[in-house]
Design a protein around this nucleic acid. Structure first.
Length: 423
DNA sequence: TCTGGGGTCCTAGGACCC
DNA sequence: TCTGGGGTCCTAGGACCC
């Protein structure tokens, strides 16, 4: 059995955890740089405001007229609450995999006969109640025989009337009931494009997709969509190891708070991304043998779109931030161009392999897992990202994010700790 | 002011080489 | 009858997810 737990409009819910005064108001959270809307609480959704990924400046007036509470992304807060959430959920199953900041897969083992003493329905209820009690985050719990069915159940838990946050697909009748009420585009792995083509073929809901002939789906689309068909029928195609497979590419990219036209600042930004991506790489115990480094103007820039990327090979697989930063410096000459209003930049680590499979290179000893990097990771994990960093990313960064509506750092900054007991 | 998210995986097609 | 390389590597962009 698989379970998927996820938080209802995570970012908006997090904003409500420490601020009781906004719990009954429509809350809308913006993306980095206050660019777009990325989350809206249930109340806001009911009012028809807060559509995901609409540019903020286009709907600002409408939101203010509706009396919405507007917040910038307070990523430190969400990450911290996410960690607590994952700790609670993971207590309930022998295996877990954190899938995103607000989603966790639970796996109860291959033996399909296992049922918890209290039964699946009650088990799911217990997870949901415990999470609410210990974190004050509302979650939906979906369970099914495959990851895709667990996802579908989770969708039903939140969207289909009568489920109230919990859905367990453990019989044919429930499976059909849930899938019949689910639009094919809401199935995990079916995006806008494929959904439109499926609709043209007369496949409108998830049950119709489940009943389609796998061979035909494979021919029309891909092996991936074919796997989805099997999974909807309870046949596991995405086994546990695949669900938690290490990443093959790791990126760190961001748009700037303000446009950048200065070479030094661009280099600092790229170095910062190298640092972030490298830490992610080490966290999954991998090494990278290649890297892509890019910077670009805005696609909306009246001067025209400029984008330049540089591909860099390392002599041997590495996870050393210093080498990644050197590659960024070397790429600068080719990427930077005077007069370009740089809007975003980033790096990607490619050609990734597991650390344990990497050979020590006697001519290039920097590829070994250095103690310095391990030490940096330890300090940063304990005191927060950037507690220590290499000088290459600059002391004074001028491209900080725009976060005009930031809530207090309730959990990560001493002076912002909630003081509700004084009220 | 004047605004437009971030991450991962996959692939078509161009550049380059022999 | 008509046609005329093939392989590798990188880049840009699409598709999907949250």
């Amino acid at each position: 059995m698989y379970a998927l737990c996820d938080v209802n409009s995570m970012y908006a819910s997090c904003e409500k955890v420490f601020d009781a005064s906004i719990r009954k108001k429509p809350v809308v959270v913006l993306t980095n740089n206050d660019g777009c809307i990325c989350a809206a609480c249930g109340i806001a959704k009911q009012m028809g405001i807060g559509k995901k990924f609409v540019p903020f400046f286009e709907v600002r007036d409408q939101l203010e007229a509706a009396g919405a509470v507007i917040r910038s992304s307070n990523y430190e807060l969400y990450a911290d609450l996410s960690e607590k959430l994952m700790a609670v959920c993971s207590r309930f199953a022998p295996h877990h995999h954190v899938y995103s900041i607000d989603e966790i897969f639970l796996f109860y083992g291959k033996t399909s006969t296992y049922v918890p003493p209290e039964g699946w329905q009650q088990h799911a209820t217990n997870i949901r109640r415990t999470v609410w009690k210990e974190t004050r985050l509302p979650i939906g719990v979906g369970m099914g025989k495959t990851p895709t069915l667990a996802k579908a159940a989770n969708h039903a838990a939140k969207r289909i009337e009568g489920f109230n946050g919990i859905a367990v697909i453990n019989s044919e009748s429930v499976r059909k009931q849930v899938l019949a009420k689910m639009k094919v585009g809401d199935v995990w792995g079916i995006g806008r494009r494929i959904a439109a083509r499926l609709n043209d073929m007369g496949i409108l809901n998830a049950l119709q997709l489940a009943n389609a002939k796998p061979g035909i789906i494979r021919k029309e689309f891909s092996v991936l969509v074919e796997s989805t068909v099997y999974e909807l029928n309870g046949v596991v195609k995405l086994n546990w190891d695949e669900v938690r497979a290490p990443k093959k590419e790791i990126y760190s990219t961001r748009s700037f708070g303000q446009r950048i036209m200065d070479a030094e600042q661009l280099k600092y930004a790229l170095s910062t991304h190298a640092e972030i991506a490298a830490a992610k790489l080490r966290k999954q115990n991998s090494m990278a043998k290649a890297m892509t480094i890019f910077a670009a103007s805005s696609p909306h820039d009246p001067m025209g779109y400029y984008r330049k990327s540089i591909f860099h090979h390392f002599a041997a697989p590495t996870n050393d931030t210093r080498l990644f930063m050197q590659a960024c410096s070397a790429a600068m000459d080719k990427i930077f161009k005077d007069g370009i209003r740089f809007y975003r930049c980033g790096v990607g680590l490619l050609d990734i392999s597991d650390k344990s499979n990497v050979q020590f290179d006697m001519f290039n000893p920097t590829n070994i897992d250095s103690e310095l990097m391990q030490c940096m990771d330890k300090i940063n994990n304990k005191y927060g990202r950037g507690a220590v960093h290499l000088a290459g990313r600059g002391i004074e960064q001028k491209f900080a994010m725009r976060r005009e509506f930031l809530s207090p750092q309730y959990t990560t900054r001493a002076r912002d700790f909630p003081k509700l007991w004084c009220v």
